[in-house]
Structure formats: structure tokens, C-alpha cells
């Protein structure tokens, strides 16, 4: 992959805090342009420390990183990044609009971008209200608006659905997905795997500060083919003939065949030839949670 296709690229990025705690250990992370990349891991795995290093809030102990083509924290790079790390933080006595005006001034951004950003996160009706009176969901949306105001190449969002009610989670998820399809690169970090499963194109698993796995979400979730048919005995015989006995398992009354979707047509033909009545044949998927547990338990 050409380096310019990567918006985030780290090499052996390491952070050891004073006191000796190793928060991030030789992290090699690559986020491609235009994708929604999910960094998942348990609490304390090093996700937020990684994000803080990427935006220059903390300095790595060793290793290097390039973010939007610049070293972390360089003003030229920060202008291309919109970030909300941990909870959004704004001035409680200012209105939502004035908080964004402060951000616009800081970033030398035209003030008209404030209205656009407020509209994008559906906060225009509440823009005059004091930030201190906002609900958690509104605060999160204002945080995203502040990140969007720069029209960034890269959005870094840390636990964006944290504390939101179900409606707020749906809205935030929709917003992130729309940003991903609008050409932004999104690096999103969360321990809510069900949310990440609905948002991300690719994901990395971080545990004890190390990136222990990285994959396309669709590939990782693939769990073979799920087949139901009658009579079951004849289905098994036909499947054993085409895929081998070791590739077949039975779960909840269905046959799970360890095969990819390319083999589906061949299996279908074999079942038809065997005179089986096929009631269901589809790719089986695991949840991201199952994938995550398999990866992390395998490491422990």
C-alpha cells in the first residue's frame, strides 16, 4: 500500500508513563484513507493513550507516527484532524454557538462554518442555549460539530456513544456512517463492540497496549455457510461429500459449513443433486464480540 493512502501510520509507537506503567507497547497502526477504522479493546487497554499520542497531547516514549502527513501535534497536521477524545469539553457559560466560535477563532476558520457544523449535527435550534444546560447527547453532538468545523481529513472519535440513550446512539451511529461515506477517514475508539460492528469497515484489537489483531470487519465476521434442509440425514451426506466431514458442525438445528461464499453455488448444486429440499442457505456471521473474545482469549 502506498504511504499516501494511509492517513494514520505508526511504527513501534510506545508510551511508558512516569512510574513505569506501559500504556502502549510498540503499536503499528495503519488507517487507510476513506475508511472507518475501529480501535477496540477493554478499558485500560491503551486506546485513549494512543489517540492522545496521535493528536500530540502526550508524547510517545519511543516510536514514530504520521497523522495526516505530519508528526503528531504539528499545527499543520492538527488543522486536518477533528478530534473528540474522552468526553467533549466546552465552556459551560458559553452557548453552543459561542463555543464553536471559540474553536473557529482558534483554528482560523471562517465563522460561517459554525452554522454549517451546527446544522450538520442538528443543533441549530439549541445553538443559543448555554452548554452547561445541554443534555449528554447534545454535548456529544457539539463535540462532533467542533471536530467537523475544520472539514477534517481525519476524524478521531473516542467513545462517541458513551452515555447516550438508545435514540442518541442511533443518531450518532448514523452521523459517523454518513461521515465515512462523505470521504472522511474516521478512527473511532470504543469498548461497545455492538456499536463498532455497525459502524466500522476495519478494526484493530488492542490489549495491554499492543495491537493483537487487525482485519476487515466483514472478513473477520465470516463464519462459513449456514444451511438448513430436509431430510437432514441426506443434507449431511451431501455436505460431507462436497466439503468434508471435518468442515461441518451442527448448531441450533442448522449445518454450519466451514466454507466461504464463493463455494456456496457448488454446495447448492450438490444439495439439489442429492434431492434435498433446501430451506436456508446463507453466509453465517459471527458478532464482533465473538470475534473479539476469540482473539483476546486466544492471547490470554
Amino acid at each position: 500500500m502506498h504511504t499516501s493512502d494511509l492517513v494514520v501510520e505508526t511504527a513501534a509507537l510506545t508510551k511508558r508513563y512516569r512510574g513505569g506503567k506501559l500504556a502502549v507497547d510498540s503499536l503499528d497502526l495503519k488507517v487507510r484513507r476513506g475508511e472507518i477504522y475501529g480501535l477496540v479493546g477493554p478499558n485500560g487497554a491503551g486506546k485513549t493513550t494512543t489517540l492522545r499520542m496521535l493528536v500530540g497531547l502526550i508524547r510517545p516514549t519511543s516510536g514514530s507516527a504520521l497523522v495526516a502527513g505530519h508528526r503528531p501535534g504539528a499545527p499543520a497536521g492538527l488543522r486536518k484532524i477533528g478530534a473528540v477524545i474522552e468526553n467533549p469539553a466546552f465552556y459551560t457559560y458559553l452557548s453552543g454557538r459561542d463555543n464553536l466560535r471559540v474553536v473557529a477563532h482558534y483554528g482560523d476558520i471562517a465563522e460561517r462554518a459554525v452554522e454549517t457544523a451546527l446544522e450538520e449535527v442538528d443543533l441549530l435550534p439549541a445553538a443559543k442555549g448555554r452548554y452547561g444546560s445541554y443534555s449528554l447527547g447534545m454535548k456529544q453532538r457539539l463535540g462532533v460539530a467542533a471536530a467537523l468545523i475544520k472539514e477534517p481529513e481525519l476524524l478521531i472519535l473516542d467513545e462517541p456513544t458513551n452515555g447516550l440513550d438508545p435514540q442518541g446512539m442511533v443518531e450518532m451511529r448514523g452521523l459517523i456512517k454518513s461521515l465515512g461515506t462523505a470521504g472522511h477517514t474516521v478512527l473511532v475508539c470504543s469498548h461497545l463492540l455492538s456499536e463498532m460492528q455497525l459502524i466500522c469497515h476495519r478494526f484493530g484489537v488492542i490489549q495491554n497496549g499492543r495491537l493483537i489483531a487487525e482485519d476487515d470487519l466483514a472478513d473477520a465476521r465470516q463464519a462459513g455457510l449456514l444451511i438448513r434442509g430436509n431430510p437432514a440425514g441426506r443434507v449431511r451426506v451431501a455436505l460431507e461429500r462436497v466439503a468434508g466431514a471435518k468442515a461441518i458442525a451442527v448448531r441450533d438445528g442448522a449445518f454450519m459449513v466451514n466454507a466461504d461464499h464463493v463455494q456456496a453455488a457448488e454446495i447448492h448444486r450438490a444439495l439439489v443433486r442429492a434431492g434435498v429440499e433446501i430451506t436456508e442457505l446463507r453466509p453465517a456471521e459471527r458478532s464482533l464480540e465473538e470475534v473479539f473474545l476469540e482473539i483476546t482469549e486466544g492471547r490470554q
Binding site: 492522545r52 493528536v55 500530540g56 497531547l57 499545527p75 492538527l78 488543522r79 484532524i81 478530534a83 477524545i85 467533549p88 469539553a89 466546552f90 471559540v102 474553536v103 482558534y106 483554528g107 482560523d108 467542533a146 475544520k150
Partner: peptide, 8 residues
């Protein structure tokens, strides 16, 4: 931290 991430 939020201000430091904006750009300057």
C-alpha cells in the same frame, strides 16, 4: 486539551 487539538 480540546483547545490544543484545534491547531495552533
Amino acid at each position: 486539551a480540546a483547545m490544543l487539538m484545534v491547531g495552533p
